[in-house]
Amino acid sequence: MHVIETDKLTKRFGDFTAVDRISFWVESGEIFGFLGANGAGKTTAMRMFCGLSVPTSGKATVAGYDVYRKSEQIKKHIGYMSQKFSLYGDLKVWENIRLFGGIYGLSSKRLADKTDELLHTLNLENERDTLVDSLPLGWKQKLAFSVAIIHEPTIVFLDEPTGGVDPVTRRQFWELIYDASARGITIFVTTHYMDEAEYCNRISIMVDGRIEALDKPSVLKEMYHAGNMNEVFQSLARKATRGE
């Protein structure tokens, strides 16, 4: 089954085409890296996949639901996390779990069970009443990710989850991603760290609103005669002609 499937998906703002006829699919259980320069159209595309923005034309389904007609269903079957917005720092650990669990529609019984289970697996039982702001970054990230998948979504969207994060914490975070992927959750991730592109099963690179390349990292490196993903990215993204 394809968790995301698009056909010539397009989004225009006035005479500006932010996303230009993209057609691709994401397989169930895969870790899919969605790369592109700032302004290439990644965020606009992600907003359409999350049911937050209606496309101008083209087709797309996410978790089997149509992005035009079933955006509310989509929201129930996806998770979302970004480095910029993930948890409320001035709420306690348990309050954050409760808030997000409630938003994702968990019943209070299930929420109570889930809270205990989560605190246990994250080893945060002693931090239940701690304000999230005073947790170390690595713990915060673990919690943010766990909360984003608390309702066991089909797919989780990670928008630059490791932006500004130090090398050690970044690697710990990727181990969480692998674990979730092994449990069958499809991962859709954007990143500006090119070593992280290597950890994806497949990646796409957007340039000027179009998907210019899409394949396994090893195939792309061969195709562009590059030693690493950074070289692949640099050679593609430098072709961009439109301003940011």
Partner: peptide, 13 residues
């Protein structure tokens, strides 16, 4: 202070 956080690889260079 972290001038290139969230900036893509081409713009960083």
């Amino acid at each position: 202070d972290e001038p290139t956080t969230g900036v893509d690889p081409v713009s960083r260079v």
